[in-house]
Computed example of a mutant assay.
Amino acid sequence: MASLVFAVPAGLSFLLFLSRVRRDPRRFSNAVLLGLTLVLVTVALLAQVADGSAPAPLVVAVTLTLLLLALSVLVLAFFLIANGVQMIRKEGPRPANLLSGLAGVSILGVFALALTAYHTNSAPLQRVAGAVLLVSGYVSYLFVSFLVYAFFYARLTLRQDVDYVVILGSGLIGGSRVPPLLASRLDRARAVYERQAARGTPPVLITSGGQGPDEDIPEADAMAAYLIAHGAPEGHVLREDRSRSTEENLRFSSAIMQERNPEYRFVAVTNNFHVFRAALTARRTGIDGHVIGSPTAAYFWPTATIREFTAIFLHHKKINLGVCTLLTLFSTLL
Protein backbone atom coordinates (compact mmCIF):
# COMPACT_ATOMS: atom_id res chain seq x y z
CA MET A 1 0.00 0.00 0.00
CA ALA A 2 2.82 2.40 0.90
CA SER A 3 4.38 1.89 -2.52
CA LEU A 4 1.19 3.16 -4.21
CA VAL A 5 1.69 6.52 -2.50
CA PHE A 6 4.78 6.96 -4.68
CA ALA A 7 3.84 4.83 -7.69
CA VAL A 8 0.81 6.96 -8.59
CA PRO A 9 2.75 10.28 -8.56
CA ALA A 10 5.50 8.53 -10.57
CA GLY A 11 2.97 7.59 -13.25
CA LEU A 12 1.53 11.11 -13.34
CA SER A 13 5.02 12.62 -13.52
CA PHE A 14 5.91 10.35 -16.44
CA LEU A 15 2.70 11.23 -18.33
CA LEU A 16 3.42 14.94 -17.84
CA PHE A 17 6.98 14.34 -19.03
CA LEU A 18 5.74 12.67 -22.24
CA SER A 19 3.27 15.48 -22.85
CA ARG A 20 5.90 18.20 -22.48
CA VAL A 21 8.44 16.36 -24.62
CA ARG A 22 5.85 16.08 -27.38
CA ARG A 23 5.21 19.83 -27.23
CA ASP A 24 8.88 20.80 -27.12
CA PRO A 25 11.78 18.48 -26.22
CA ARG A 26 14.13 21.46 -25.75
CA ARG A 27 13.28 22.21 -22.10
CA PHE A 28 15.39 21.57 -19.02
CA SER A 29 12.15 21.06 -17.09
CA ASN A 30 11.73 17.86 -19.15
CA ALA A 31 14.94 16.56 -17.61
CA VAL A 32 13.74 17.50 -14.13
CA LEU A 33 10.43 15.68 -14.67
CA LEU A 34 12.20 12.57 -15.94
CA GLY A 35 14.52 12.64 -12.93
CA LEU A 36 11.53 13.05 -10.60
CA THR A 37 9.86 10.03 -12.21
CA LEU A 38 12.97 7.91 -11.64
CA VAL A 39 13.22 9.04 -8.01
CA LEU A 40 9.56 8.26 -7.32
CA VAL A 41 9.83 4.82 -8.94
CA THR A 42 12.91 4.09 -6.83
CA VAL A 43 11.18 5.19 -3.62
CA ALA A 44 8.09 3.10 -4.54
CA LEU A 45 10.28 0.02 -4.95
CA LEU A 46 12.03 0.70 -1.63
CA ALA A 47 8.67 1.15 0.09
CA GLN A 48 7.48 -2.18 -1.31
CA VAL A 49 10.62 -3.87 -0.01
CA ALA A 50 10.28 -2.17 3.39
CA ASP A 51 6.67 -3.24 3.98
CA GLY A 52 7.46 -6.86 3.12
CA SER A 53 5.12 -7.08 0.11
CA ALA A 54 7.88 -7.36 -2.48
CA PRO A 55 8.73 -10.78 -3.95
CA ALA A 56 12.12 -12.20 -3.02
CA PRO A 57 13.76 -11.57 -6.43
CA LEU A 58 12.82 -7.88 -6.22
CA VAL A 59 14.27 -7.62 -2.70
CA VAL A 60 17.55 -9.12 -3.92
CA ALA A 61 17.60 -6.88 -7.00
CA VAL A 62 16.95 -3.69 -5.01
CA THR A 63 19.53 -4.60 -2.36
CA LEU A 64 22.21 -5.36 -4.94
CA THR A 65 21.38 -2.17 -6.86
CA LEU A 66 21.77 -0.03 -3.74
CA LEU A 67 25.11 -1.66 -2.91
CA LEU A 68 26.33 -1.17 -6.48
CA LEU A 69 25.22 2.47 -6.45
CA ALA A 70 27.12 3.14 -3.23
CA LEU A 71 30.22 1.46 -4.62
CA SER A 72 29.89 3.16 -8.01
CA VAL A 73 29.94 6.62 -6.39
CA LEU A 74 33.37 5.88 -4.91
CA VAL A 75 34.57 4.36 -8.19
CA LEU A 76 33.26 7.44 -10.01
CA ALA A 77 35.24 9.73 -7.70
CA PHE A 78 38.55 8.01 -8.47
CA PHE A 79 37.69 7.79 -12.18
CA LEU A 80 37.02 11.55 -12.31
CA ILE A 81 40.30 12.31 -10.56
CA ALA A 82 42.18 10.10 -13.04
CA ASN A 83 40.33 11.75 -15.92
CA GLY A 84 41.25 15.17 -14.55
CA VAL A 85 44.93 14.22 -14.61
CA GLN A 86 44.55 12.94 -18.18
CA MET A 87 42.82 16.16 -19.25
CA ILE A 88 45.67 18.27 -17.87
CA ARG A 89 48.24 16.12 -19.68
CA LYS A 90 46.42 16.19 -23.02
CA GLU A 91 44.72 19.59 -23.01
CA GLY A 92 46.78 21.69 -20.59
CA PRO A 93 46.06 23.08 -17.09
CA ARG A 94 43.28 25.47 -18.10
CA PRO A 95 40.50 26.02 -15.50
CA ALA A 96 37.87 24.22 -17.64
CA ASN A 97 40.10 21.14 -17.81
CA LEU A 98 40.18 20.84 -14.01
CA LEU A 99 36.44 20.21 -13.65
CA SER A 100 36.41 16.41 -13.64
CA GLY A 101 39.29 16.19 -11.16
CA LEU A 102 37.67 18.76 -8.87
CA ALA A 103 34.37 16.86 -9.06
CA GLY A 104 36.11 13.63 -8.00
CA VAL A 105 37.86 15.34 -5.08
CA SER A 106 34.55 16.92 -4.04
CA ILE A 107 32.81 13.52 -3.91
CA LEU A 108 35.56 12.13 -1.66
CA GLY A 109 35.38 15.28 0.45
CA VAL A 110 31.63 14.85 1.03
CA PHE A 111 32.20 11.21 2.05
CA ALA A 112 34.98 12.22 4.45
CA LEU A 113 32.87 15.00 5.98
CA ALA A 114 29.85 12.71 6.47
CA LEU A 115 31.94 9.99 8.11
CA THR A 116 33.71 12.46 10.39
CA ALA A 117 30.41 14.03 11.46
CA TYR A 118 28.92 10.59 12.11
CA HIS A 119 31.78 9.56 14.40
CA THR A 120 31.85 12.78 16.43
CA ASN A 121 29.44 14.48 18.77
CA SER A 122 30.05 17.93 17.34
CA ALA A 123 26.64 19.49 16.66
CA PRO A 124 28.07 22.28 14.44
CA LEU A 125 29.96 19.76 12.30
CA GLN A 126 26.85 17.59 12.00
CA ARG A 127 24.83 20.62 10.85
CA VAL A 128 27.47 21.45 8.26
CA ALA A 129 27.58 17.84 7.08
CA GLY A 130 23.79 17.72 6.86
CA ALA A 131 23.70 20.90 4.78
CA VAL A 132 26.44 19.63 2.47
CA LEU A 133 24.67 16.29 2.00
CA LEU A 134 21.34 17.95 1.21
CA VAL A 135 22.87 20.38 -1.28
CA SER A 136 24.98 17.61 -2.83
CA GLY A 137 21.88 15.45 -3.15
CA TYR A 138 20.01 18.25 -4.94
CA VAL A 139 22.87 18.96 -7.34
CA SER A 140 23.35 15.23 -7.96
CA TYR A 141 19.63 14.86 -8.72
CA LEU A 142 19.81 17.66 -11.29
CA PHE A 143 23.02 16.27 -12.80
CA VAL A 144 21.65 12.74 -13.20
CA SER A 145 18.41 14.18 -14.63
CA PHE A 146 20.47 16.23 -17.10
CA LEU A 147 22.64 13.25 -18.01
CA VAL A 148 19.73 10.85 -18.63
CA TYR A 149 17.65 13.35 -20.59
CA ALA A 150 20.62 14.61 -22.64
CA PHE A 151 21.27 10.98 -23.62
CA PHE A 152 17.60 10.66 -24.61
CA TYR A 153 17.51 13.96 -26.55
CA ALA A 154 20.69 13.17 -28.47
CA ARG A 155 18.98 10.06 -29.85
CA LEU A 156 15.91 11.81 -31.21
CA THR A 157 15.97 11.32 -34.98
CA LEU A 158 15.20 13.75 -37.79
CA ARG A 159 11.70 13.08 -39.07
CA GLN A 160 11.89 15.16 -42.26
CA ASP A 161 14.28 16.76 -44.70
CA VAL A 162 15.81 20.13 -43.80
CA ASP A 163 16.77 23.14 -45.88
CA TYR A 164 19.94 23.94 -43.95
CA VAL A 165 22.56 22.21 -41.81
CA VAL A 166 24.31 24.64 -39.45
CA ILE A 167 27.68 23.57 -38.06
CA LEU A 168 28.65 25.32 -34.82
CA GLY A 169 32.27 26.43 -34.57
CA SER A 170 34.62 25.50 -31.73
CA GLY A 171 37.93 27.21 -32.40
CA LEU A 172 40.92 26.54 -34.67
CA ILE A 173 44.44 25.29 -33.95
CA GLY A 174 47.53 27.01 -35.32
CA GLY A 175 45.34 29.94 -36.27
CA SER A 176 43.85 28.28 -39.36
CA ARG A 177 43.50 24.49 -38.99
CA VAL A 178 40.38 22.54 -38.07
CA PRO A 179 40.97 20.51 -34.84
CA PRO A 180 39.64 16.94 -34.41
CA LEU A 181 36.72 18.14 -32.24
CA LEU A 182 35.49 20.46 -35.00
CA ALA A 183 36.28 17.96 -37.76
CA SER A 184 33.92 15.53 -36.05
CA ARG A 185 31.09 18.08 -36.35
CA LEU A 186 31.90 18.76 -40.00
CA ASP A 187 31.98 15.05 -40.85
CA ARG A 188 28.58 14.54 -39.20
CA ALA A 189 27.14 17.49 -41.12
CA ARG A 190 28.54 16.14 -44.39
CA ALA A 191 26.96 12.76 -43.66
CA VAL A 192 23.56 14.46 -43.13
CA TYR A 193 24.06 16.34 -46.40
CA GLU A 194 24.98 13.22 -48.37
CA ARG A 195 22.12 11.17 -46.93
CA GLN A 196 19.55 13.82 -47.85
CA ALA A 197 21.17 14.57 -51.23
CA ALA A 198 20.73 10.89 -52.10
CA ARG A 199 16.97 11.49 -51.77
CA GLY A 200 17.16 14.35 -54.25
CA THR A 201 16.89 17.32 -51.84
CA PRO A 202 20.43 18.40 -50.85
CA PRO A 203 20.46 20.98 -48.01
CA VAL A 204 22.72 24.01 -47.74
CA LEU A 205 25.60 23.72 -45.28
CA ILE A 206 26.26 26.81 -43.12
CA THR A 207 29.60 27.00 -41.33
CA SER A 208 29.22 29.26 -38.30
CA GLY A 209 32.12 30.83 -36.44
CA GLY A 210 33.89 34.19 -36.26
CA GLN A 211 37.58 34.99 -35.99
CA GLY A 212 39.12 34.74 -32.53
CA PRO A 213 42.00 36.94 -31.34
CA ASP A 214 44.47 34.07 -31.82
CA GLU A 215 43.13 32.98 -35.24
CA ASP A 216 44.39 34.01 -38.67
CA ILE A 217 41.05 33.50 -40.43
CA PRO A 218 37.40 33.18 -39.38
CA GLU A 219 36.42 29.70 -38.22
CA ALA A 220 33.68 29.67 -40.87
CA ASP A 221 36.29 29.94 -43.67
CA ALA A 222 38.41 27.07 -42.32
CA MET A 223 35.28 24.94 -41.81
CA ALA A 224 34.03 25.65 -45.33
CA ALA A 225 37.43 24.77 -46.80
CA TYR A 226 37.37 21.46 -44.89
CA LEU A 227 33.91 20.57 -46.18
CA ILE A 228 34.77 21.42 -49.79
CA ALA A 229 38.07 19.50 -49.57
CA HIS A 230 36.09 16.45 -48.38
CA GLY A 231 33.57 16.49 -51.20
CA ALA A 232 30.86 19.02 -50.32
CA PRO A 233 29.84 21.11 -53.36
CA GLU A 234 31.06 24.68 -52.99
CA GLY A 235 27.69 25.98 -54.17
CA HIS A 236 26.02 24.32 -51.19
CA VAL A 237 28.28 25.88 -48.55
CA LEU A 238 27.55 29.25 -46.91
CA ARG A 239 29.62 31.06 -44.29
CA GLU A 240 28.50 32.87 -41.13
CA ASP A 241 31.73 34.48 -39.95
CA ARG A 242 30.74 36.91 -37.18
CA SER A 243 29.64 34.75 -34.22
CA ARG A 244 31.64 34.27 -31.02
CA SER A 245 29.25 32.11 -28.97
CA THR A 246 26.67 29.37 -29.43
CA GLU A 247 23.84 31.89 -29.16
CA GLU A 248 25.40 34.05 -31.88
CA ASN A 249 26.08 30.94 -34.00
CA LEU A 250 22.36 30.23 -34.00
CA ARG A 251 21.10 33.80 -34.18
CA PHE A 252 23.34 34.96 -37.03
CA SER A 253 22.81 31.73 -38.97
CA SER A 254 19.06 32.12 -38.48
CA ALA A 255 19.24 35.59 -40.04
CA ILE A 256 20.94 34.13 -43.13
CA MET A 257 18.35 31.36 -43.45
CA GLN A 258 15.45 33.73 -42.82
CA GLU A 259 16.62 36.07 -45.58
CA ARG A 260 16.90 33.25 -48.12
CA ASN A 261 13.84 31.24 -47.06
CA PRO A 262 11.42 32.55 -44.38
CA GLU A 263 9.88 29.06 -44.03
CA TYR A 264 13.23 27.34 -43.54
CA ARG A 265 13.80 24.09 -41.64
CA PHE A 266 17.23 23.39 -40.23
CA VAL A 267 19.31 21.15 -38.02
CA ALA A 268 22.37 22.28 -36.07
CA VAL A 269 25.41 20.05 -35.57
CA THR A 270 27.69 20.14 -32.55
CA ASN A 271 29.52 17.55 -30.42
CA ASN A 272 27.38 15.08 -28.49
CA PHE A 273 28.21 16.55 -25.06
CA HIS A 274 26.98 19.99 -26.24
CA VAL A 275 23.74 18.91 -27.96
CA PHE A 276 21.24 19.51 -25.17
CA ARG A 277 22.59 22.91 -24.10
CA ALA A 278 22.69 24.04 -27.73
CA ALA A 279 19.04 22.96 -28.05
CA LEU A 280 18.15 24.92 -24.91
CA THR A 281 19.94 27.96 -26.35
CA ALA A 282 18.04 27.64 -29.63
CA ARG A 283 14.73 27.56 -27.79
CA ARG A 284 15.70 30.50 -25.57
CA THR A 285 16.57 32.61 -28.62
CA GLY A 286 13.30 31.73 -30.36
CA ILE A 287 14.84 29.57 -33.09
CA ASP A 288 12.91 26.44 -34.00
CA GLY A 289 15.27 23.65 -34.97
CA HIS A 290 16.72 20.32 -33.90
CA VAL A 291 20.32 19.75 -32.73
CA ILE A 292 22.29 16.59 -33.39
CA GLY A 293 25.68 15.46 -32.11
CA SER A 294 28.96 14.09 -33.39
CA PRO A 295 31.38 11.76 -31.55
CA THR A 296 33.81 13.10 -28.96
CA ALA A 297 37.05 11.58 -27.68
CA ALA A 298 36.25 9.44 -24.62
CA TYR A 299 38.75 11.19 -22.34
CA PHE A 300 37.24 14.60 -23.17
CA TRP A 301 33.61 13.63 -22.49
CA PRO A 302 33.47 13.71 -18.62
CA THR A 303 34.95 17.20 -18.28
CA ALA A 304 32.89 18.54 -21.18
CA THR A 305 29.68 17.09 -19.74
CA ILE A 306 30.34 18.61 -16.31
CA ARG A 307 31.05 21.96 -17.98
CA GLU A 308 27.75 21.79 -19.89
CA PHE A 309 25.81 20.97 -16.72
CA THR A 310 27.53 23.78 -14.81
CA ALA A 311 26.56 26.27 -17.51
CA ILE A 312 22.91 25.15 -17.38
CA PHE A 313 22.89 25.16 -13.57
CA LEU A 314 24.23 28.73 -13.49
CA HIS A 315 21.83 29.86 -16.22
CA HIS A 316 19.05 29.01 -13.73
CA LYS A 317 21.11 30.30 -10.81
CA LYS A 318 18.31 32.19 -9.05
CA ILE A 319 16.14 29.13 -8.50
CA ASN A 320 19.06 26.72 -7.97
CA LEU A 321 20.92 28.91 -5.49
CA GLY A 322 17.60 29.64 -3.81
CA VAL A 323 16.91 25.92 -3.35
CA CYS A 324 20.46 25.35 -2.06
CA THR A 325 20.01 28.18 0.45
CA LEU A 326 16.69 26.77 1.68
CA LEU A 327 18.22 23.29 2.07
CA THR A 328 21.09 24.78 4.08
CA LEU A 329 18.68 26.66 6.35
CA PHE A 330 16.54 23.54 6.75
CA SER A 331 19.57 21.53 7.84
CA THR A 332 20.66 24.24 10.26
CA LEU A 333 17.22 24.42 11.89
CA LEU A 334 17.08 20.65 12.30
Rank of each mutant, 00 (worst) to 15 (best):
M1E: 09
A2F: 12
F6G: 02
A7N: 00
A7M: 09
A7E: 00
G11L: 15
F14E: 09
L16S: 12
L18T: 09
L18N: 13
R22A: 15
R23M: 08
R23W: 13
P25L: 07
V32K: 02
V32G: 03
L36R: 07
L36F: 13
T37P: 03
V39D: 01
T42E: 01
V43F: 05
V49K: 00
V49G: 05
D51I: 11
D51Q: 05
G52R: 09
A54R: 00
A54Y: 03
A54Q: 06
A56F: 14
V59L: 01
V62W: 08
T63V: 03
L71M: 12
L71Y: 11
S72W: 12
S72I: 04
V73Y: 05
V73P: 00
L74K: 08
L76G: 03
A77G: 05
F78S: 10
F79K: 01
F79W: 11
L80E: 07
A82V: 03
N83R: 04
G84D: 02
I88R: 15
R89M: 10
P93F: 12
P93K: 07
P95Q: 11
N97C: 07
S100Y: 10
A103M: 13
G104S: 10
V105H: 00
V105R: 05
S106F: 14
L108K: 07
V110R: 09
F111K: 01
A114L: 14
A114K: 07
S122C: 04
L125F: 11
A129S: 15
S136V: 10
V139C: 11
S140L: 15
F143R: 13
S145C: 11
S145Y: 06
F146T: 00
Y149R: 08
Y149V: 04
F152T: 05
Y153Q: 07
A154G: 15
L156Q: 12
T157A: 14
L158D: 01
L158F: 10
V162G: 08
D163P: 10
V166Y: 02
G169F: 02
G171A: 13
L172Q: 07
L172A: 07
I173R: 09
D187H: 11
A189C: 06
A189V: 03
R190D: 09
V192M: 10
A197I: 05
A198V: 03
P202T: 05
P202Y: 10
P203Y: 07
V204G: 01
L205K: 12
S208F: 09
G209P: 08
G209R: 02
G212Y: 01
E215A: 04
D216Y: 06
I217C: 05
E219H: 07
A222W: 00
A224D: 06
H236M: 02
H236A: 13
R244P: 00
E247V: 03
S254E: 15
A255V: 04
M257V: 03
P262I: 12
Y264F: 15
V267R: 01
A268H: 02
V269S: 02
T270K: 00
T270Y: 06
N272C: 01
F276I: 02
T281H: 01
A282S: 14
R284W: 12
T285G: 04
G286H: 08
G289F: 00
P295H: 08
P295K: 11
A297W: 03
F300W: 14
W301S: 08
T305A: 13
T305F: 14
F309N: 11
A311G: 15
A311W: 07
L314I: 08
G322S: 13
G322N: 10
G322L: 14
V323Y: 04
L327N: 08
F330S: 14
T332I: 15
L334F: 07
